[in-house]
Amino acid sequence: MSRLLPVEDAQARLLALRDPLPPENIAFSESLGRYLSHDIVAKRDQPAAPLSAMDGYAIRFADLPGPWTIAGEIPVGAAPAHPLAAGSAMRIFTGAMLPDGADTVVIQEDVAADGARLTLTGDGPAAHGAHIRARGSDFIAGAPLLPAGTRLHPGAIAAAIMGGAAQLGVGARPRVAILTTGDELVQPGRALAPGQIPDSNGTMLAAMLAGEPALVSLPLHIRDDREILARVLKDLARRHDVIVTVGGASVGDHDHVRGALDDAGGTIDFWKIAMRPGKPLIAGTIGDALLLGLPGNPSSAFVTATLLLIPLVRHLAGARDPLPQVRQAALAVSLGPGGQRRDYLRARLDGGLLTPFDGQDSGRTFPLAAANALVIRAIGAAPRDAGEPASYIDIA
């Protein structure tokens, strides 16, 4: 029997088949969820000048405990009209620039104003420099803000804008085609004849990619016909970066993905992985397109998409760390020994405890609805008791 490829080797070989797509410049409003193609370095100090962190009055610390003469007001977004003289105070608001000569802010709750006279009524600032945001206290010009490959979330976008970026360079979105195969499959919502089942995998995979930076075509379905499949693969390869087939990846009489890939002029890079579910997975190329042939059972398709399809899409889109993050949590129940393939067990993480489901058959769909984690059980792993740690992948 041929040696099954370890999961890590399969992931590495798949990502090595193609470099990330060329970058493109986009507006900030389009950048959420995209991956930076270059480092973001600050072009300015933030703050660019000392600012007040509170509403109150700018003073000289040496003039405490007052009283002071109120010498004006500094609105947010405007430069102070003049320096602060000794014995004077200027009304100031949160985020406003301090005038030259001021080194402390006394908050408005600690003082009382009577005309132009300001007196201390509370404890006052505890130290020189109180309630001031120093220039460059957030970051300074030239400081690295975001490394290439960062996925842009709202906070990262804000940091890039505050650092002075005018637009963002990001990896292009890979074009992904999803193709389900099988005579037994019927489009969702249509009547079923005996022996037929609804085609859930295409919609499931499209939903899994909905939050990723990808351009996903509506799922297609074709019957079990090698000639038709080869023709469709050849056509899709001209217009897509990734083709995902679902079903037909095993060795049955009606499993045509390998043969159709060959007929279409493609090549196989690897086939079969030491994992459960998901062993009969195919990876190859057709021209410039990548082909990922997933197993047809729903759980197998879901698990292999989590471990290989989503990382591939993220890699092509420019991600620095495209693989799913492995976490640790305690088991709520005991876990039996591992077998000859690495297991990815559908499980529920609740209250910090992992509970793998009893039914792990790859044809079962219902556990996917309740699962929010995949518990990882290594090849040949020893049994573990409740309370012991286990590795898992978050799929919530």
Rank of each mutant, 00 (worst) to 15 (best):
174 P>M: 06
174 P>R: 07
176 V>W: 09
176 V>S: 06
176 V>G: 10
177 A>V: 00
177 A>R: 12
177 A>C: 06
179 L>G: 00
180 T>L: 05
181 T>S: 03
181 T>D: 00
181 T>E: 02
181 T>I: 15
182 G>D: 01
182 G>V: 06
183 D>L: 02
183 D>M: 08
184 E>K: 09
185 L>S: 01
185 L>D: 00
187 Q>V: 11
187 Q>H: 13
188 P>M: 03
189 G>R: 08
189 G>S: 01
190 R>W: 10
190 R>F: 11
192 L>S: 00
192 L>A: 02
193 A>V: 03
193 A>F: 06
194 P>K: 06
194 P>C: 06
195 G>W: 04
196 Q>D: 08
196 Q>T: 05
197 I>G: 03
198 P>H: 11
198 P>S: 04
198 P>Q: 11
200 S>M: 09
201 N>R: 10
201 N>H: 11
202 G>A: 01
202 G>Y: 11
202 G>M: 11
202 G>P: 05
202 G>H: 07
202 G>N: 07
203 T>E: 13
203 T>Q: 14
205 L>K: 08
205 L>R: 02
206 A>T: 05
206 A>D: 00
207 A>T: 09
207 A>I: 01
209 L>T: 04
209 L>S: 08
209 L>V: 02
212 E>Y: 04
212 E>S: 09
213 P>F: 02
214 A>D: 02
215 L>D: 14
215 L>S: 12
216 V>A: 02
216 V>W: 03
216 V>E: 04
219 P>E: 10
219 P>L: 10
221 H>Y: 05
221 H>M: 11
221 H>W: 14
221 H>K: 11
222 I>V: 15
225 D>K: 03
225 D>P: 07
225 D>F: 00
225 D>T: 08
225 D>H: 05
226 R>F: 02
226 R>M: 13
227 E>M: 13
228 I>F: 11
229 L>M: 15
231 R>L: 14
232 V>Q: 08
233 L>G: 05
234 K>W: 12
235 D>E: 15
235 D>F: 14
235 D>S: 15
235 D>L: 14
237 A>Y: 03
237 A>F: 09
237 A>W: 07
239 R>A: 13
239 R>E: 14
239 R>W: 13
